[in-house]
Design a protein around this nucleic acid. Structure first.
Length: 270
DNA sequence: CGTCACACCTGCGAGC
DNA sequence: TGCTCGCAGGTGTGAC
């Protein structure tokens, strides 16, 4: 479900209910996701006021007036359910605001995480300190990719999934960005030409921006998130389209890279 | 350090 | 109807 555009739209959806809100009740329905919930999570959040929301890479941020920020990651299957009718299986963390709004973090596979981090030291939090530039910020440039890919013999696609090189890309958008840039996913990263990198950077930015604009690929309705495919899924040009025709007249192909499916058009990506 | 394989966990659709 | 298999948007660790 969640790559950068999905996390961004999730955060925007949460902000409608949480920004400036007081958290009246917090319940944790199991001890852990990928990691244990942080000790003191319930105590710290109960009675706290949310001072703002944000995103870093694929992490969502809920800032509070306790000088602590809730940092959540949705893993593969995580989503926030807003105003659920009932609490369901896999609603692991539930927040209720003083205004009576209920928000439930649901994650069947539990690859996600929730951490509590000192707000003033977020950048030094180890998972954040290791991240590369935000793809939608000014620091993702052809020069940055040139430096990151220099002398690397690995194929470009798994390198773009490396959060230390670009923070926030996932399998769908890497496939889509490489398609738009006309670069084959198994191209040796260090051998990608400068003009190709000049195409790749805007391809990454536009595919992410268009998806955010469309509300993400998988989260359709923030009033009642249901995990169904979002509008942007209809805009995938290669992802999930093995065997279908490409606009160029070729056929979308699929192969495996590092245990992940790669979709591409052998006719337009060189 | 770079690269790769694998582990973590549940649900769903396809095929038999 | 019910079983097994393969697959899924991510990350972290450990072996070479």
């Amino acid at each position: 479900m969640p790559e950068l555009p999905e996390v961004e739209t999730t955060v925007r959806g949460l902000a409608r209910y949480l920004d400036g809100a007081k958290i009246a009740r917090v319940s944790v329905n199991r001890p852990d996701l990928r990691r244990p919930f942080p000790p003191g999570l319930v105590q710290t959040l109960t009675g706290a006021t949310v001072t703002g929301l944000g995103r870093r890479a694929k992490y969502g941020l809920i800032h509070t007036d306790r000088d602590q920020t809730v940092v959540f990651h949705l893993g593969m299957s995580g989503r926030w359910r807003i105003e659920p009718d009932t609490i369901e299986k896999h609603d692991h963390l539930v927040l209720e605001t003083a205004a009576g709004h209920v928000l439930a973090l649901n994650d069947a596979r539990r690859f996600g995480s929730v951490d509590l981090v000192d707000s003033a030291a977020l950048d030094q939090w180890p998972p954040f300190a290791a991240l590369g530039p935000e793809p939608l910020g000014n620091d993702l440039t052809p020069r940055h990719l040139h430096q990151a890919f220099k002398d690397r013999i690995a194929p470009v696609k798994p390198l773009l999934l490396d959060q230390r090189i670009v923070a926030g890309l996932g399998n769908i958008y890497v496939c889509e960005a490489l398609f738009r840039a006309g670069i084959r996913p198994d191209k040796e990263a260090g051998k990608i030409s400068r003009p190709a990198l000049e195409r790749l950077v805007p391809a990454i930015k536009t595919v992410l921006a268009e998806s955010i604009e469309a509300g993400g690929s998988t989260i359709r309705d923030y009033a009642q998130p249901n995990g169904e495919l979002g509008y942007f899924a209809a805009s995938w040009r290669v992802y999930g389209r093995e065997g279908e025709p490409c606009a160029c007249g070729g056929t979308v192909a699929r192969f495996n890279q590092g245990g992940r499916s790669t979709f591409w058009c052998p006719k337009c990506q060189k």
